[in-house]
Nucleic acid binder design. Structure first.
Lengths: 140, 140
DNA sequence: TACGTCACTTGCATTTTGCAAGTTTCATTG
DNA sequence: CAATGAAACTTGCAAAATGCAAGTGACGTA
């Protein structure tokens, strides 16, 4: 599996902001990181996010993020081989950046809701419709 | 001056991260914001950043950021009319996001230096070469 | 043997970037 | 007053990135 070495040392400037953007400054990378932070790990799980990332882009981003050392992949089963992706320490550290995005987005873009809020409101909806039968174990 | 109304309400999802990325999730927007935070304000000043943003992209980003309400432009002189750009409160609030980028970049991308660090080292260089004459008032 | 699934890959069409050169509006210089 | 220069963009076009749909390979299951 040829994982190209290209991209080493091609930052636009020494500015940490510009350089970080060179790694994850596109429309999709940080969303992949977001989902990995939320515990998603397989290709299918990542592909099923509400934003509907095109599968070829997802494959490309996983490759780039791995090349950049932000994520690691490992086979979670043989026969057939299936890979699981997880953040490296470096990648996990992006949580602070994501948190800043959440704060700004919630404060300045009306209608945005965090993952947790959406989950909570779905719960209420479901509870209302179902008349709150079944304590609903193992919610996902 | 036709400032298109397109783009209103076309966010990929209700996620604040995804939505924020829809506004500023590209390679250049946040660098423009960075420079405005640093007090740059004219087209020329913005264009002369070390990353060398193409001028058509700069014009486009200024338009988009203004449409999104992140910056405001005003003529700073007539004859000839010249515009100055500044961040709105909404735009200034992105400082927290930028700070998170700086922290992450400095910690994980070797060789990156903040604006202030670069200035300091230039100062030392200059001081060394000049034998430290002139106390250098008004540092920027 | 015939599906179905997961994890990708491939082939384009469309959109976005990027580079270089051109334009407009003045102010200044000779 | 003609020539030059600068600031702030615009335009044209090539190159790269993105997006969509369909295809592929390796299984497991019916």
């Amino acid at each position: 599996m040829k994982r190209s070495k290209k991209g080493v040392g091609k930052f636009r400037s020494v500015c940490p902001i510009a350089s970080t953007l060179d790694l994850v400054g596109d429309k999709w990378s940080l969303l992949v990181v977001r989902d990995l932070l939320r515990g998603r790990s397989t290709y299918g799980e990542l592909a099923s996010a509400p934003e509907k990332i095109p599968t070829n882009i997802l494959a490309d981003r996983l490759r780039r993020l791995e090349d950049a050392g932000l994520i690691e992949s490992s086979a979670y089963q043989e026969r057939p081989v299936r890979y699981a992706y997880k953040l490296s320490a470096k990648g996990e550290a992006l949580e602070d950046v994501l948190r800043a995005f959440v704060t700004w987005g919630k404060a300045h873009i009306p209608g945005t809701k965090t993952y947790t809020e959406v989950a909570r409101s779905n719960e209420r909806q479901t509870a209302a419709r179902a008349g709150s039968r079944k304590p609903s174990r193992n919610p996902r």
